[in-house]
Design a protein around this nucleic acid. Structure first.
Length: 383
RNA sequence: GCGAUUGUAGUUCAGUGGCAGAACGUGCGGUUGUGGUCCGUAAAACCCGAGUUCGAUUCUCGGCUCUCGCUCCA
């Protein structure tokens, strides 16, 4: 069966890996005191637009209508929904959310129209929180054995440079977009595009060494972020041409890349909602899962009931408290083939013989070795 | 959205203007208490629509879809 353009099925090992990655991410978020939230997938179109009517992401929303002809849209991210969640919350409000978002946009490798985002935000944040947020990234990616670089910039700094160059207010957005392409397009091309706005000079500035930027007032923010990142023992890479698309960012912006993937695996920054400074990021679960080098070991046990269903169920219920257990009602030959097929490492035979001896026979599927043990030795055997 | 490319069982791939094939996988059996081997057997596909034709899965056109770029993004 084919899936619709940009929408995917996940099953078997792949689904298992996704679940595991999701769990790792969620546990990390929680370990920093973030609490979960859930929001609707469908929203009024107006609410979706309200936040950033000019953002490209907004024009990419899937639109739909209900029976009352109300205009609705599928969420394209989580951040705008935070506006509702943050109301009347004691600050800082730290929440994470993992869920599906939808964008009606062109697809390519590692780019889909339905994908899972892992989002965390701190409502009411300072630069110290930004460092903490960056640390969560480092924690997650290390656990998943993904190599990464955190590229960081600051929108204020970018603005300061644009001001210095006397760039017209209306051109700023376009120029920021052009310079964001610097790591993709050649310098020549970007320069050509910037000529339209008489802003070619900017490219020279952005090429300068880090020390050059110290003269800007907003560089203080980068310095402070670096100071706190040091306390968390994480490395960040200052990249002056990094801008990021979403227009609501107002300070630090960052983007995480891996050498194994062209696409950005995670992006975020700081923004203002209702005069409250916030910071956060969205990570692409699909991309992270693709990169994650983790084993999806199967610790399941298959109990083979040889016409001893009562006992099989009884034992399954007992073991289930600590290890996943599945009962197979049928011939042993079939059962073993089944275990092979799903890579189940242990099977337990429950038949007349076992009942008579008041033991169970447990078999290691890899070595083929069998052992008669008593019920309460199972846990010990497995460890 | 634009340009290029692709489309045949669940998967990977053959093939033909006239009955559509394999391998792997799946089901059943050989094997009613022991698997990863073997043997037998079954189910299972020509992306959709129009046109040309006695006849189209094959040729033509359109759509959809796959993959890769571009714009943009997680």
């Amino acid at each position: 069966m084919k899936t619709t353009k940009g929408f995917c099925d996940y099953s078997g090992q792949e689904a298992l890996k996704r679940t595991k990655v999701k769990k790792t991410i969620e546990e990390t978020f929680r370990s920093y005191g973030f609490e979960p939230a859930e929001t609707p997938i469908i929203e009024y179109e107006e609410f979706v637009k309200e936040n950033n009517p000019n953002d490209d992401a907004v024009s990419e929303t899937f639109k739909l209508q209900d029976r009352g002809k109300r205009k609705l849209a599928l969420r394209y991210e989580f951040t705008f929904q935070l506006k509702r969640l943050m109301k009347n919350k004691k600050l800082p409000y730290k929440r994470y959310q993992i869920g599906q978002v939808f964008r009606d946009e062109p697809i390519s490798a590692n780019r889909f129209r339905q994908f899972t985002q892992c989002d965390i935000d701190i409502i009411g944040s300072t630069i110290k929180d930004e460092a903490e947020i960056l640390k969560t990234i480092s924690d997650i990616l290390k656990k998943l054995k993904i190599d990464f670089t955190i590229n960081v910039n600051n929108r204020k700094l970018l603005n300061e440079i644009l001001e210095e160059q006397k760039i017209k207010e209306k051109d700023k957005k376009e120029i920021i977009r052009e310079i964001d392409k610097l790591d993709k397009l050649s310098e020549k091309e970007v320069k050509k595009n910037l000529k339209k706005y008489e802003a070619e000079k900017i490219i020279e500035i952005l090429k300068k060494p880090k020390t050059y930027f110290k003269k800007y007032k907003s560089y203080e923010e980068i310095k402070e972020l670096e100071k706190f990142c040091k306390l968390y023992k994480i490395k960040i890479n200052f990249q002056p041409n990094l801008a990021r698309g979403l227009s609501y960012y107002n300070g630090t912006v960052f983007e995480v890349k891996s050498s194994k993937m062209k696409e950005t695996i995670l992006g975020g920054g700081s923004y203002i909602f209702d005069k409250i400074q916030c910071t956060g990021y969205g990570a692409g679960l699909d991309r992270i899962t693709t990169l994650a080098k983790i084993q999806t070991e199967n610790n399941k046990i298959l109990i083979i009931s040889l016409n001893q269903d009562k006992k099989a169920i009884e034992i399954a219920e007992k073991i289930r408290e600590s290890v996943p257990v599945q009962i197979f009602y049928g011939k042993p030959g079939k059962a073993l083939e089944y275990a092979n097929s799903y890579k189940i490492p242990f099977v337990i035979f429950i038949g007349k013989e076992e009942i008579k001896k008041k033991k169970i026979k447990i078999k290691n599927m890899e070595t083929g070795k069998e052992k008669l043990i008593s019920e309460n030795q199972i846990k010990k055997y497995l460890s």
